[in-house]
Design a protein around this nucleic acid. Structure first.
Lengths: 335, 335
DNA sequence: CCTTAAAATGTAAGCGCTTACATTTCATGA
DNA sequence: TCATGAAATGTAAGCGCTTACATTTTAAGG
């Protein structure tokens, strides 16, 4: 079933069928109906490839993320997918895994699908040195590049993010104000927003004049989902240096700390206060519930798609949309 | 940059370039190198649409799932995506949401992308009455349909699943053997495998001669991720009927039950035994850790992709691959 | 060095669609 | 009724690629 068959059966030319298909222009209502009836009757669907070839677009967005089974990323992907779909776009998902040396390959791959835009989900797509980000510059020459929860200043690159610095700083201050000064800070290798959170934490510690807090800053390398391993990691730290507070850059890490505490009979929040980050579903999976920073994922995804749609339709759009994080207080903290 | 430009620069015909591109046939090594050098130099990537038009395939698989942020589905999608990618296929993800009346639309949508196959992730794609599954029959006339964790007997439809009936039956028996007979069974609307689990539970209860166990079978309708709501739901049940065991068809539901118990000072596992299902990361996010049934997701996804690849290359493949679930015993049970 | 068949390469016809431009149809006012 | 321009429709030229088939090159045997 091609456009030719339809045109023949409807007694019109292929151009007319094509016009009907594209909802375009001026087609007499009676003609339109005639064609649509035939299309309906034969359950015709246009060939996407041929279509893309003519249209140079298939209303498809490429979504790249490291690991769609990561709680935060999965949620982001879901929101994005829904939002795009609601706006008539489809998404190609591509999980890069955590080895991001080959980021460029994935971007090329997805570019070759002739997507209309690319969304990079998660801040680990942004490297620390300039050369590492070359691939973004190249890709942005072709189509808009959208960053969720990260920022990169370059033409045709747009981002949404949470003010992680401020949010983490606020979280740390809250704990410090409650008189807890020996705080274990747990983070993982998430580059861009990870750096900002860390800086926010440090700033708060300095502001409150805490000495030697760096001793208790630890990076857990490995998939954060492996909560059991995180707990072991925390156990090894606790053997060396005692602490009465934990602030984690991801909820998973916080849960690992809680787990270790409960394994050792440490009471939460009486003996140990814990703050996570992302306000994920994990916050309500432990007892007591986890205090956590909400980084406005839903707002971010919404804004990102709106920005993308704007850009695609030629509007001038904000390069960067920043949302304020918010500390959601629950049972793992006394304050 | 088209294949013409490359052919010109390399001093060969477009056919030769195309052959090099497709790794095909007989091209003299020297010629191949010459062409590849030019391709490399100009960073040429073939147009996917034009390619698909000729090849009638773009090595792309459509993945449909209700909600990629659901723990189980997210993990499945991730495994599938990785496995497909490792085999040179890409994936188009499409989240249908939980309103599955419109399943057919999504399948059509993804069919129009000319994917080589469709993977339906999660058993809620299979309806209970025949007509509801019509859309699968239609789609399977065009391309292979793969079902993860569900089954449907029809030509060109392949499935992998866990023997949920046996696994759930085993779980219930374990609890019954430990002397716990007042068991709350929590499930949600997940149709196909949900039915099997429920049947497995009932069978075990009958086999052990438990009377009136149906009173404690409850369906929680709503997104299982909303653990707080699940906990409230369980609370309302507990007010009516006491129980000393909980078996849940999803880990999320089990966590909700644990949460409610801990809110009320009920000790786990002394006063209450809990078994979940899926063996997800949630099992280690609570204290004590959650006993859960592993439904072999990773094996299933692996097998599913292998089967799909086999089918696509014309081999005869098993219509259905069944894996045995396994009860992973942890801290929420005494046995 | 010539024949011959195999190997390598080239030629050109699509694939199914969009769209600029050409042509026909239609409605309007004179 | 007829000219006239607008609206509707048709014609045909691509889009960038694959591939059957035609042609040329190569190498081996006589």
């Amino acid at each position: 079933m091609t456009i030719y068959d339809i045109s023949k059966k409807a007694g019109v030319s292929i151009a007319t069928v094509s016009r009907v298909l594209n909802g375009s222009d001026k087609v007499r209502p009676s003609t339109r109906k005639k064609v649509l009836d035939i299309i309906e009757k034969y359950e015709y669907t246009p060939n996407a490839f041929a279509r893309g070839m003519g249209l140079h677009s298939l209303k498809t967005i490429g979504i790249l993320c490291a690991d769609s089974s990561d709680l935060f990323l999965a949620k982001a992907v879901y929101f994005l997918e829904q939002e795009l779909q609601a706006n008539g776009y489809e998404s190609i998902l591509c999980c890069t895994g955590y080895n991001l040396d080959i980021k460029k390959n994935y971007v090329d791959l997805i570019l070759s699908k002739k997507v209309d835009g690319i969304i990079l989900v998660g801040s680990n797509f942004i490297g620390t040195d300039e050369e590492e980000n070359q691939y973004i510059k190249e890709a942005s020459a072709q189509i808009p590049i959208m960053l969720l929860n990260a920022a990169f200043d370059y033409p045709n690159v747009y981002s949404t993010l949470c003010d992680d610095y401020a949010a983490m700083s606020e979280a740390a201050s809250a704990m410090l104000n409650a008189g807890i000064r020996d705080i274990l800070y747990l983070y993982n290798s998430d580059s861009y927003s990870g750096q900002k959170k860390l800086k926010g934490f440090k700033a708060a510690m300095e502001r409150h004049g805490v000495d030697g807090y760096e001793k208790l800053i630890y990076c857990y390398d490995g998939p954060p989902q492996r909560v059991r391993d995180v707990a072991k990691f925390v156990e090894s730290i606790a053997r060396e240096t005692p602490f009465r507070g934990v602030i984690a850059a991801e909820d998973e890490l916080a849960i690992g700390a809680i787990k270790n505490a409960q394994n050792h009979g440490v009471r939460i929040p009486e003996d140990l206060s814990v703050i996570g980050y992302n306000n994920s579903m994990l916050t309500c999976c432990c007892t007591p519930e986890l205090t956590s920073v909400d980084n406005r994922l839903e707002s971010q995804t919404h804004q990102l798609v709106q920005t993308l749609l704007g850009v695609l339709s030629g509007e001038e759009m904000p390069k960067q949309s920043v949302f304020s994080g918010k500390l959601i207080k629950r049972g793992t903290t006394l304050f």
